[in-house]
Amino acid sequence: MTAQKTLGVAVIGTGRMGADHVRRLDEVIAGARVAAVVDIDAGRAKAVAERVDGCSAYTDAAAAMDDEGVDAVLIASPGPAHEAALLQALARDLPVLCEKPLTPDAASALRVVEAEARLGHRRVQVGFMRRYDPEYERLKTLLDEGAFGRTLMLHCVHRNAGTPPGFTSQMTINDSVVHEADAARWLLGQEITAVRVLRPTPSGRAPAGLDDPQLVLFETAGGALVDVEIFVNCGFGYQVRCEAVGEHGTARIGDAHGLCVNAAGRWGGEIAQDYVERFRDAYDREVRAWVDATRRGETTGPSAWDGYAAAAVCEAGVRAQATGERTPVGLAERPALYR
C-alpha cells in the first residue's frame, strides 16, 4: 500500500458499530473509502451499501475480501464471528482493524495470535479505542514520564445507563470490564496476573439474575493493584473514569469537564448516554491512525497479543465471579513478534 492510493476497506458487520464505522470512513476519514460491506442479513448489507458510492454488498466475508477493490478489513461483527474473519484476512495478508473482543475466549484468541506469528509480521489491530482518547493519552504520558513516581494503584469506574434484554453477569466482564483490562495493561505496562470479583447486594435497578454493580480487582506483575467499579444499570448515563495513584501524586481522568450551565438557581453539565457519544472522537482518531498506518504499509496500535491477553483476563474474571475466589490469569508464552 502506497501513501498515494486510497485504501479500499471491507466493513464486516453493519449493525450499530459497523454502520457507524461505514459513516466514519465515508464522511470523516481521508485516504479511505468503503469498498464493500458484509452482513448475514442481505437486506441490511444492501441498504448500507446503497448509501455509499461504489460500495458492494456481500453476505460472505471471504467473498468481500476477494473483491479487487478491497485492500483492508474492518471487523465489527459479533464477537463469535471474529476468529473466522480474522483467519481469512490473515490468509490473504490483509490488514485488519478488529473491534473488541479479538475473539470471545482466550483459546480462539491464541489461535489468531499464532496465525499472525506464522505470517511473520503484524496485520491485526484491535479496537481498544480508549488508547486514542486524549485524556487517556495524557495520563499514559504522565505515567510513562514517572511524574508521580511508581504507580501503585488505579481506581476505575465504568457505568452504563442501562443494559439490553438478555445482558448477563458474565457480560459485565467480557463486554465492559474488558476495556479496563486493556487500559490497565497499557497504562501500567504490566500484565494482569490475578482477578477477584466482589458483589454487593444488587441495585434495585438490576434486572432479575444480573449481579449489578460489581467490584473487580486486578493484580499486576509489577505489584500494582487496579479496582474497577462496574455498574451497568446506574440509570443516569455513561461514565468512565480512571485515577492513577503514584508514590508522589495522583492524576484522574473522566470527570467530563465540558460545558457547564448556570441557570434557574442551579449549575451543571451533561452526562453522555452511551459509549458512542463519549468516545466519538477516540473512534475517529483510532480509525484515522489505522488508515494512515496501513497506507504506509505499517500495523500499529493494540496488537493481537493485547486482544489475547484481555481475553485471558476476562476468562479469569468470569471464573472469579462464579467462585468468589482470587483467580490467576494464565498466559501463553508471548511470541517474539509482540515483544
Rank of each mutant, 00 (worst) to 15 (best):
E145C: 10
A107S: 15
A208G: 09
G268L: 11
P78L: 08
D53Q: 13
I173R: 06
I271T: 13
S169W: 07
L217A: 05
V52S: 08
D292S: 15
R51E: 14
R92I: 13
L87H: 03
F218V: 00
V38D: 11
S56F: 03
H155T: 09
G209V: 12
R123H: 13
V329E: 00
Q190K: 01
Q273A: 01
F167S: 13
H179E: 01
A117M: 02
V178G: 08
S203R: 04
A264G: 06
G13M: 09
A316P: 09
L217P: 00
I29D: 01
M171T: 13
F148I: 12
H179P: 02
D133T: 04
K140S: 14
F167K: 08
S77H: 03
R123M: 13
V126A: 07
R295T: 08
M17V: 15
D71F: 04
R150I: 03
R205G: 10
I40A: 10
G146E: 09
P202K: 04
T220E: 11
A194H: 02
T201R: 12
L188K: 02
R138L: 12
A251R: 11
L188Y: 05
T327I: 09
D67G: 10
G254H: 03
R285T: 05
L74K: 03
A45L: 07
E145F: 03
R16V: 10
T14I: 08
E191Q: 11
A72P: 02
R51V: 05
R252F: 07
H155L: 12
E68L: 09
E68W: 03
I75Y: 04
A147R: 14
W186N: 11
G254C: 04
A309K: 00
V195M: 00
G209H: 14
L154N: 06
L86W: 08
C55N: 08
L97F: 15
G8Q: 00
A63H: 05
L25A: 02
D292N: 11
A91T: 15
P335W: 00
V28Y: 02
D292P: 08
G127A: 07
I12W: 01
L337R: 03
A45V: 03
